[in-house]
Every structure is written in structure tokens, then in C-alpha cells.
Design a protein around this nucleic acid. Structure first.
Lengths: 205, 205
DNA sequence: CATTTCCTCACCCTTCTGAGGCAGGGACTC
DNA sequence: GAGTCCCTGCCTCAGAAGGGTGAGGAAATG
């Protein structure tokens, strides 16, 4: 009984690569593909695959929301996050959402196939790189929702005054949030904070 | 006589996808793969393919430098840039370096195959999206080398004083560069400039 | 109920930033 | 040789950013 796999990625070429890779394995079969989070949920509903390979960056519904949606309906769903690169915060969120593994695209075939087999057996598996990142930062206090909101506005080039206006809070409050963000991310200034936020997956591009 | 193709990308999975795609076409054959710019030049030297598919973001030597190196040796080399997403500046530089086409990953098979055929016949081809971006910004004066250098330092969270120290120039000069950058990119402040620089491919991640 | 976290706001103070204008020297082009 | 672009430097000055500290209310957590 082969491992039934669903592949979710908005890059057709990459899905093609996965398909080709899986086709070479006698114990695996690709039962469906999806190019967005929304499609992923639909396809999962249709096929209920043993393992789902899920990208995070997608158009219609991101991977993390898709993971949450799928596991809300099927708590046993085994999902592997397969992403180009993403900061530790994204990895953390994905794992918290119920992902079984977090692997980077660009890995050699063997590693990806092994991860699929491991996960299909119910084992969890984290990339050494990602694990190191997680270990390094998991102790760090992460940003609060409000701080993420502020940082996002900072990333758009807003001044404290404009941020305050948009969030309908006092400018002093905005400054307090900024100060907190700088301290938590260990950033030199707001620009640095934005870069670190991007790198670590706190804010999107 | 099939179109002989070299595929350059640091993602093994994506190369796999390309390979699978090309394998379905009777008039194309994949003669070599490379996972870095350096390898790309070596493989080109070995096989002198009709068409090269080249990613831009790679570890050892980036795609643009690889294009320049290859076309320095073989001015007739037909290279297609195949990238996930990149700003207009990168596209501009790639085309200037001698790329025949600039297409985004995530396109459907047909478009990619058509581009390969067009380029193999010597036609150039630009993505509509990318072309629009280029048209929109090509009038803009681009950043000077020094300004790019300054912006890169800004992105690392350096103050004007530190930037000046690292470049061994006066802080006032650093400020002049910053002012010029802000004006050219039409940015509100340095943070905004960094974001715009990232989006447009002026600076890397 | 006690504690903690988060969001909110306030005040003081120093430093940095960004707008504006100006100008000389070097390199390159026409 | 004239013009242009780039890099460099200087000045002023208002406004913004950031460090430090404190503190109150709301909500969640134990």
C-alpha cells in the first residue's frame, strides 16, 4: 500500500519536480496537487492523503492557514512544510499549527524522500538548520500581535506619527512599541528591525 | 536536431521539474545541470548548449555574474533567466548582461517551453509583468555603485556615522548619498528605501 | 485571588535624520 | 574644451527617533 501524497505549491515547475521524484519511488504515489492553500484544503477533503507536502508562500491562502484549516478537520493529518527559505518564526508557527516536518527546498532527493517516509510513519522531523535557528531563538520573547502590526507599518516606511494615526493610538504608545520591538529583535534601529523581521519570518515581504 | 539545454538552479527539485518537463518534448534535450554560477560556467564550457536556463539567486556565484562570464567567452550564448521573483533592477541587469529572456518560475509549462523555442531561434522574450515594471522604472535614474553600497549598509542597520566610518568618508558625505537615494527611490525615509531596494532588486536579502 | 502580560500613555533628554542649498575635483564623453 | 555625472564635503535647522523610567487598566493565566 503506497504512501498517498498531496503536493501543494504555487510553482508548477516545482510540483513537476516532486511528481517526477515520487514517480521513481514504488512505495509512493502522488494523488493530487494544489497551487494554493484554498485548493489544498479542497484536495485534502477529496483525497485525504497520507502525507501532504505544503509550501508556505502562496497566493490565495498561505500554507500556515491551510495547515490550520486541514488539521482542524483532520487532526491526524500529516503535513510536511517544504519551503525555499523562511525564518525561524515561520517554522515555529508551522510546527505549532501541526506540521510534522519543516524541510527546505533544495535538499537532495534522498532527504526529502526519507522525510516523507518518516512522517508517513508518524515521526516528526526537523531540518538541522531550522532546528538550530529554533533553538537559538526559541528562548527569545517573540513579538506581540500589536508589535507585529507596528513593525509591518514601519516596514512600509511609516513614521511613528503615521503609525499612531493608522492604529489610532498615541504617538508615545507607538514609540513604546517600537522600543520594545528593537529590544526584542536586538536591532540597532527601525530599519534593522525590519530586515531582521523579514529574515526571521515575523513579517512578510 | 533537438535543442540542447543547460539548466542552472540551486534547487534540486526545480531542476528535476525542468528535466521532467523537457523530457516530454521531442525537440529538446537536457544536456547538463548546474547548481551554482561557477558550475554553470564550467558546464557551459563542456557542453556549449543551445539554450541555458539560469536562476539568479545562487550560492557560489550569482546568475548575473555567470551570464556575464559565459557571454564574455561565448557572445552568442542564449540564456534565459528563470527566477521566482525579482525586481525590475535585477531584470534590467540580467538583460543588460546579455540574457535573452526573463521569465518567472511558476509559469505554466507551455509558456516556458515556448520561451525556450523562441530563444533557441534567436528571439528575445520578456514577461509582460516584468516588461511593465521595466517600462515603469527605466526612466528613473538608477542608483550609483556608491549609493548601492550605502543602501546596503543602511539595510544592516548602520547609522550615517557608522556608514561613513566603514566607507572612510565624512558623515556629511554619507548623508548626501542617503539624500540622493531617498530622492531616486522616492522613499519616505531610510527604512522605506531599504524595502524599495529589496523589492526592486537593488540590494539583496 | 494573585500574577503576569499586553496595551496604553506620559515626561525628559540626547542623538540622528532628512530637507535644502552650495561647491570643488576627478573622470568620462562628445 | 565643454558638458555631465559621480563622489566628495560643508552649513543650517526643524523634526523624528531612540534611551530611560514609570505607571494604570484590561485580560488572561495560574
Amino acid at each position: 500500500m503506497p504512501i498517498r501524497i498531496l503536493c501543494v505549491d504555487d510553482h508548477a515547475l516545482l510540483r513537476e519536480g516532486i511528481a517526477a521524484l515520487i514517480a521513481t519511488q514504488s512505495d509512493m504515489t502522488l494523488v493530487a496537487e494544489a497551487s494554493s492553500g484554498r485548493e489544498a484544503v479542497a484536495q485534502f477533503r477529496l483525497h485525504q492523503p497520507d502525507v501532504t507536502l505544503m509550501d508556505l508562500q502562496m497566493g490565495e491562502m498561505n500554507g500556515i492557514d491551510a495547515i490550520i484549516a486541514i488539521r482542524a478537520e483532520w487532526p491526524g493529518a500529516k503535513i510536511i512544510v517544504l519551503t525555499t527559505y523562511a525564518g525561524d518564526v515561520l517554522a515555529q508557527r508551522a510546527l505549532k499549527a501541526g506540521a510534522f516536518a519543516y524541510v527546505l527546498k533544495g535538499l537532495i532527493r534522498k532527504d526529502i524522500l526519507e522525510t516523507i517516509r518518516d512522517v508517513s510513519r508518524g515521526l516528526k522531523r526537523i531540518e538541522p538548520n531550522v532546528a538550530a535557528d529554533l533553538a537559538q531563538h526559541q528562548a527569545d520573547t517573540s513579538l506581540t500581535p500589536r508589535e507585529v502590526q507596528v513593525l509591518t507599518l514601519v516596514a512600509s516606511g511609516n513614521s511613528n506619527k503615521l503609525i499612531a494615526a493608522q492604529l489610532q493610538i498615541n504617538e508615545e504608545t507607538a514609540k513604546t512599541h517600537i522600543k520594545s520591538i528593537l529590544a526584542k529583535l536586538d536591532a540597532n534601529d527601525r530599519t534593522h528591525a525590519v530586515i531582521l523581521g523579514l529574515r526571521r519570518g515575523v513579517i512578510g515581504f
